[in-house]
Each structure stands twice: as structure tokens, then as C-alpha cells.
């Protein structure tokens, strides 16, 4: 019989609320499963999507981000920033073929030791039911891992970082024209940016050691050829992809080193 599955759970907890809540769980001796490893950060706003995605790449079965309750953030609004970022990260996780429920954002205060323990019990139970992450363990799903890499790189990209960091300000406070961007519009914009950037990062991965044509890429990535070509143009503009050679009538493209992080 296979050993019972013990999910690997990593938690990034803010110093002021969630970490203190975890301490209170300790002081109050609320027992919870030993699957969680905690990294202390000063604020949940410190979390960035690429860091979270890296955790899945490294084999985490679940990631918990813990922050202060809305309005309670020790740093005023870091938790609201975290909320936006986690929302976007969930989209990236989903596109990579992982269940977005593997990523949780929880508001846990310094007075909620019991809730902290209950959250960990519940999250661990949920992960046990879900089974291992497709990319964790000894035999990760390489295809999904590749997409996850792409997702991580997309998350590191200027465009997504800029959009997600400014989302709160643009939607809640207004832009340079003193207009508030409707949430729906912002969601659509992010969604399309995520799709584009992930596709671009996937393209870069596919041509990191071997030059390929638009058609080959289209087949491999399940994308229409015209879209692939459009992305190749953008990536060439960004200096991340070069034309390697032309075989017969077919141009073959190769990724530049700085595109592969």
C-alpha cells in the first residue's frame, strides 16, 4: 500500500496578525496537523504572484497567505494588495492546470488562535482529499510544470506586475483622468493580459534550446497560428526571441537567454 499522502503546505504569514494568530494557537495548545511550514513576512502585501507560483513548482501541495482582516492591516492596506495579487495568482494557477483551491488567502487576526488551527486543519484535510499537486512529488506532470513555469514568468513580467499592483488604485481611487476603471473592465484586461503573457512565456520555453516554426509552436501550444505569429512579433520587439534561420520557406525562431529565467 502506498504511504498515506501527507500534503506539503507552505504558509506566508504577516507578522502582526496571522503569525501572531499562529502563536496564539500555540499558546492555547490548539492542535493542528504538522503539514504546515511557516515563513514570516512583515505584511501580506509583500507576497508576489511569482513567489507563490514558485512554491508550486518546488512541490508545494498548497500555499496559504495569511493577512490581517480588512481594515486591520498594520500597514494600512497591504492586505488589500495581497487580495488582488492572490486573485490574479489563482487565475494563473488555474491556467497551469492546478486547482486554484490549492492557494488560499485567509484573514486571521492575532486574537484568532482557534481559527488559525481550524484553518490549517481544514486546508490540510481539503488537500488530502484533493490528492497531491500534479507537479509535486517524485513524478511531476512535466507538461503542467512547463505551463507553471510559464505562468511564473508571466507573473514576473512588467506588464502583469504593473496591472495587478495598480488595480486597487485604478478601480477604487481613479486614474490620471480622475476616472474609476470599472472592476469588470479591469478583470477582462487582466484576464487577456494573463492569457497573452502566459502564451508568450510558453513560446519562449518551447524554443529555449531548439528553434521552431510558427506552425510547430501552434501545434505544441494549442494556439491558432496567427496568434502565435503575433506573439512572436511582440517577443522579437522585446528582444526576447530572434529569428534563428529560415528552412525552406519556414522561419524558425529561438529564445534569447534573458527570456528564460
Amino acid at each position: 500500500m502506498a504511504a498515506k499522502f501527507e500534503p506539503k503546505l507552505i504558509g506566508f504569514l504577516c507578522n502582526w496578525c496571522s503569525y501572531a494568530g499562529a502563536d496564539l494557537a500555540g499558546v492555547s495548545r490548539y492542535q493542528y496537523p504538522a503539514n504546515l511550514r511557516i515563513v514570516r513576512v512583515m505584511c501580506s502585501g509583500r507576497m508576489e504572484p511569482s513567489l507563490i507560483l514558485e512554491m508550486f513548482i518546488q512541490g508545494a501541495d498548497g500555499v496559504l497567505i495569511g493577512g490581517c482582516h480588512p481594515g486591520d492591516c498594520h500597514y494600512l492596506e497591504g492586505n488589500y494588495q495581497a487580495e488582488r495579487k492572490v486573485k490574479m495568482t489563482k487565475k494563473l494557477v488555474k491556467r497551469a492546470g492546478l486547482e486554484p483551491e490549492r492557494l488560499r488567502l485567509e484573514w486571521i487576526s492575532a486574537a484568532e488562535g482557534e481559527r488559525f488551527a481550524e484553518t490549517i486543519r481544514d486546508f490540510t484535510k481539503q488537500l488530502k482529499e484533493m490528492g497531491p499537486s500534479p507537479v509535486s512529488g517524485d513524478a511531476p506532470d512535466i507538461d503542467k510544470l512547463m505551463v507553471l513555469f510559464a505562468a511564473k514568468n508571466a507573473a514576473k513580467d512588467f506588464r502583469l506586475k504593473l496591472l495587478v499592483s495598480r488595480e486597487l488604485g485604478l478601480v477604487e481611487e481613479g486614474n490620471v483622468y480622475d476616472e474609476k476603471i470599472p472592476q469588470k473592465e479591469m478583470d477582462d484586461l487582466l484576464e487577456s493580459a494573463i492569457g497573452y503573457e502566459m502564451a508568450r512565456c510558453s513560446i519562449i520555453f518551447s524554443i529555449r534550446d531548439k528553434a521552431l516554426s510558427v506552425e510547430e509552436l501552434s501545434e505544441r501550444l494549442d494556439l491558432p497560428t496567427d496568434k502565435v505569429l503575433q506573439h512572436i512579433v511582440t517577443l522579437r520587439d522585446r528582444g526576447l526571441v530572434i529569428l534563428d534561420r529560415i528552412e525552406e520557406d519556414t522561419p524558425l525562431y529561438l529564445a534569447q537567454e534573458e527570456g528564460i529565467k
Binding site: 512583515m42 505584511c43 502585501g45 509583500r46 514558485e54 518546488q58 500597514y75 499592483s165
Partner: peptide
């Protein structure tokens, strides 16, 4: 708090004692 570091699109901001490298290696 580190929110600026997390937001910076250019990765130009480091948060002393909680750098990307520190958090990442600790978590890994």
C-alpha cells in the same frame, strides 16, 4: 512592509531582511 518591493515591475526594490532571495530560499 514590503508592498513596494512586491509591486515593483522592474524588481528594482529590495526589502532588507526579507529579500526575494531570503524568502524564496527559506520557503524552498
Amino acid at each position: 512592509c514590503g508592498t513596494c518591493g512586491a509591486a515593483c515591475p522592474e524588481k528594482a526594490i529590495e526589502i532588507a531582511h526579507f529579500t526575494d532571495m531570503q524568502l524564496l530560499s527559506q520557503a524552498i
